[in-house]
Design a protein around this nucleic acid. Structure first.
Length: 236
DNA sequence: CAGCTAACCTATTCACAGT
DNA sequence: ACTGTGAATAGGTTAGCTG
């Protein structure tokens, strides 16, 4: 069993921090650590308790350790190395973790936590990018629709005009309702798919305002790019 | 198949640094 | 003092291994 992490079933993570219990690494080359004040680094050996006395002692040590415990940021060179490694592969295998741990003088647990947090940040960025991509696509389609609607209205008006002239010259006059024509045009444009309820007269306004609501199924059927979280890291 | 372990995830906490 | 950021923690899920 690996002692570095995920030993919660044996050592509960109670307050104050017990991180050094499961941070313990048998490869104790922490002396080249550029961050020597790592919480509890002085008492890591005490984590290997076998008797109640040793446990008590460890608890005492922990008490004092927590008093002087300071959370330190990783150095820029450590972050650089971690970033490089992350760009290569966003997931961390044990070998790589131990290698980074040795190289950077950090606990394996710290490497794992950094990668986990980095993945979270990366995923959030990906979501942000996806949002803007979808928004751009939506805006484009929306303005295209608007232009098409305007063109249809112009063509309808010309048709009405022609019909009017024909009927006047023939001595017949038929009144056409302009508003009705526009409405039917609008329905023709998007009615069949059911994307937007045709009974709602505010639809056009809603769309141009970017508040177009549509069913999830339709959204899922859209040919939009999927997030490629598992493909390649995002380089900011 | 159940139990265990390691690794992952999301949500949250907390300390630090910059303003 | 306030706030944003990032390291660390809590607790849950999942996959692989083993008896």
């Amino acid at each position: 069993m690996e002692w570095n992490e995920s030993t919660r079933s044996f050592v509960p993570r109670a307050e104050p921090s017990l991180s050094f219990f499961y941070n313990y690494s048998s490869s104790s080359n922490n002396h080249n650590n550029s961050n020597p004040s790592y919480p509890g680094s002085e008492v890591k050996e005490a984590a290997l308790v076998e008797t109640p006395q040793e446990l008590l002692h460890a608890m005492e040590e922990m008490k004092y350790a927590s008093q002087r415990e300071k959370k330190k940021r990783l150095t820029s060179s450590q972050i650089e190395s971690l970033e490089r490694s992350f760009q290569e592969e966003i997931k961390l295998d044990t070998d790589r973790k131990m290698k980074l741990s040795r190289e950077l003088g950090l606990q394996p647990r710290q490497i794992a936590v950094w990668f986990q947090n980095r993945r979270t940040r990366w995923k959030a960025k990906q979501l942000e990018h996806l949002y803007f991509a979808l928004k751009q696509e939506f805006d484009l389609i929306s303005s295209e629709k608007h232009k098409l609607q305007e063109e249809v209205m112009r063509l309808k008006a010309r048709l009405r005009e022609q019909a009017f002239r024909t009927h006047v010259s023939a001595g017949v006059y038929t009144e056409m309702c302009g508003a009705e024509t526009v409405e039917s045009t609008s329905e023709m444009l998007h009615g069949s798919k059911g994307m937007i309820s045709s009974s709602n007269n505010n639809n056009n306004q809603q769309i141009t305002d970017g508040y177009c609501s549509f069913p999830v199924e339709d959204h899922q059927n859209n040919n939009v790019p999927l997030p490629n979280w598992a493909v390649a890291p995002y380089c900011p």
